[in-house]
Write a protein that binds this DNA or RNA. Structure first.
Lengths: 325, 325
DNA sequence: CAAAAATCTGTAACCGGTTACATATAAAGA
DNA sequence: TCTTTATATGTAACCGGTTACAGATTTTTG
């Protein structure tokens, strides 16, 4: 591997001069400049980023901690984070925490040791430890654990409200909400928004709780349809759960959307892969990831962010699981 | 941040002794050992991995280059790679290449600069550059670009054969294969396996080609069903394409599986999220990722691998898009 | 009991960069 | 013309570890 010393030798200058050329800092004569550039080209020299990191305490790497990349919501988010990071010359290190606080802490420690420049986290755990111990920028994405952290989220509350409103407007009268796990900000907010509309309209509804996974959703759906045959509008707190409910409904030959309307939340890609397509409250997933990435880099570069919480709008995405207007 | 010097001072020994304790190398007296351990504990010292990397030229990082993490096949693979890597103390850096050779090369360069210890690549490009320039272990995953590279793949040929056989055994007589893009090993092999069975049985079939994406698959399906109304068995080269064909079939009210049987390839999670569930030739995706990761680490640790190509078996996964036996 | 071998420890060089500082020369100002 | 200032460059310390080597002490061996 060619080092800065090799370049210096070849160009007949000192390493300091080469370094000055590389970093475009300090004074370098025309003559030296061209000799160095020539040597760099001839030797196909690339400065060693580890050595740079050691001195500069900055690695051009961003950590991204998600619960599980297998959860179909996160690949798009991760992709967006990486795309933006790349533009600015950053590399992304992806970590799956399984929502395990210990794992999260271990990852954060390991990443900090590698002089990671910033951290983007999707977790509902309190991040005081991260927040205090690290002097690196941390951006919360989708899930907010700590209020003091800059965050990128979608308007979950509004989404919940819209979902309820949408179902009611399409003629649903007996509503149910399959809410997500307690303690996760997004599912709480969706629930709150949904309930606010329900109360506002003086309606009644059935509430069930379900983790954001297919199998539990299917199991719950079986029981649910048996227990509540009259329900004609279901709002699931995420698309995976909605898919589970749709699947069981189709299996049981419950006419969707004629006798049962279904709306999910997220707007992940596979909503389009099924038939009928899932009607859903779509978050701007890619936008969220991209924004978080930009925000993180902005903070790394020392610039302040205007606002702590960045809330992006959601939008109903028409599918075939709800009726036309 | 506490450094090895701080520890040495506190323990009243030299940095060399502390280093010996850390690496459990060389002679260290009982007395010095306990003093150092005590100091480490009191200062909550963690050795700086960047400094270590600089000297050792090894980073405990593995690069994973995939075409696009948004392709639902890759998250499971990536997860497996990361899980195994973690067990052995390695961190994974994920990169999306978009199948762009230039991007791939840039990533490889950047990763090598960071003293990445090994590389796992899912690409169909020739990797001579990688293979020659890098003296780091490279493992090909799912897609093989270079024959000389150790690789982990599933038995795509056998999968293609099995798919044909399965359709025929369930009574399909007019077969079609929607093959994947040319030049990608896996799609070629699936095609070859399928055709081998067809020829072996003296059958005839329709072949179409489609990229591994939903929209093109849907468009093709529309045209396909119009042009070939008599086809009663379709083998799609991957599950996304199969999903597109299923979606259009359902939309057109073509009875599946009674008048049209459908089988995909991959066994990705969303096959279970739809109704009917997708019948598919399932690859052991997680196993493949885990094996690639283990293989890579084995090579990093200097041990030789028994065989260059590791081919894992595929298995038909029963869904509702084919008839019972 | 002396020599050889094993154990212990510190100094300093090294990994490959960056930069403070000293020094030298050229250009500008008095 | 003599300062002063701007330009140019090299030396050496530094980032935080690892390790070759040398010297000192202890243990083993003959």
């Amino acid at each position: 591997m060619t080092t800065i010393k090799d370049v210096a030798n070849k160009a007949n200058v000192s390493v300091a001069t080469v370094s000055r050329v590389l970093n475009q800092r300090g004074y370098v004569s025309e003559d030296a400049l061209s000799k160095v550039l020539q040597a760099i080209k001839e030797l196909d020299y690339q400065p060693n980023s580890v050595a740079r990191t050691l001195y500069n305490k900055t690695s051009n790497m961003i950590g991204l901690i998600v619960p599980d990349i297998q959860n179909p919501f996160f690949p798009e988010l991760a992709r967006a984070v990486e795309d933006v990071a790349n533009i600015y010359g950053y590399t992304v290190v992806l970590c799956n925490s399984d929502q395990d606080e210990k794992k999260e802490r271990e990852y954060v420690d390991a990443l900090k040791q590698k002089y990671i420049d910033g951290l983007i986290m999707s977790t509902h755990h309190q991040q005081e430890n991260v927040y205090s111990a690290a002097n690196i920028p941390v951006v919360a994405l989708d899930r907010v654990g700590d209020e003091r952290l800059p965050a990128v989220v979608s308007n979950n509350y509004n989404g919940g409200w819209k979902a309820a409103e949408y179902l009611v407007e399409r003629g649903a009268t007996r509503l149910a909400h399959i809410r997500g796990p307690r303690g996760i900000t997004s599912s709480e907010e969706r629930y709150n928004g949904f309930m606010a509309y329900i109360k506002n309209q003086g309606l009644d509804c059935v509430i069930e709780e379900c983790p954001f996974q297919l199998n539990p959703a299917e199991e719950l759906a079986e029981r649910f349809y048996a227990a509540h045959p009259h329900i004609d509008g279901v709002f699931a707190s995420n698309d995976v759960v909605a898919a589970g409910f749709l699947k069981v409904a189709l299996k049981q030959k419950i006419p969707v959307p004629d006798r049962l309307q279904l709306i999910g939340f997220d707007g992940i890609a596979f909503g389009h892969m099924m038939y009928p397509e899932l009607t859903t409250v779509a978050q701007p997933i890619y936008e969220m990831g991209a924004l978080a990435s930009r925000l993180c880099i902005k903070l790394i570069e020392g610039r302040q962010t205007e606002q702590l919480t960045n809330q992006l709008p959601v939008q109903i995405q028409l599918g075939g699981t709800t009726r036309g207007a």
